[in-house]
Amino acid sequence: MAQHHDTHAPHGGDAHESHGSMKSYVLGFVLSLVLTAIPLILVLNDIVTGNAADVVLLVTAVLQFVVQLFFFMHLKEEKKPRYNLMVLLLGLVIVLTIVAGSIWIMKYNMVSH
């Protein structure tokens, strides 16, 4: 039934949404390539090492995540109410809780090792 909304069911809020233009796809693709190349070049050539390398990797990874959400997942073009954005933010909160909470809890258990 869901796939038939556009022609039949009068449930509303489900009209065709924009799926981006050639320009936005190319821009997203180029940005992704650049964000992949930066850590690759920096780390392979030992320009950054240790903690600095970790930071560069993490920052570019997060930026890449954002680029993909906006250019490929069309997060910005979503109509109101913006359920995808809301669920994404909630998901991030939960992921943060899982990771940070686990580190916090398990840090104190390291005495057993």
């Binding site: 909630l90 809780t97 916090w104 809890i105 398990m106 104190y108 258990n109």
Partner: peptide, 21 residues
């Protein structure tokens, strides 16, 4: 439904994660 994700450690208080946790 959201806050239920912030209480899990009460199932293993005795595991020894320390007073703060």
């Amino acid at each position: 439904s959201v806050f239920s994700f912030f209480t899990w450690a009460h199932h293993f208080f005795t595991m020894g994660s320390g007073a703060n946790v």
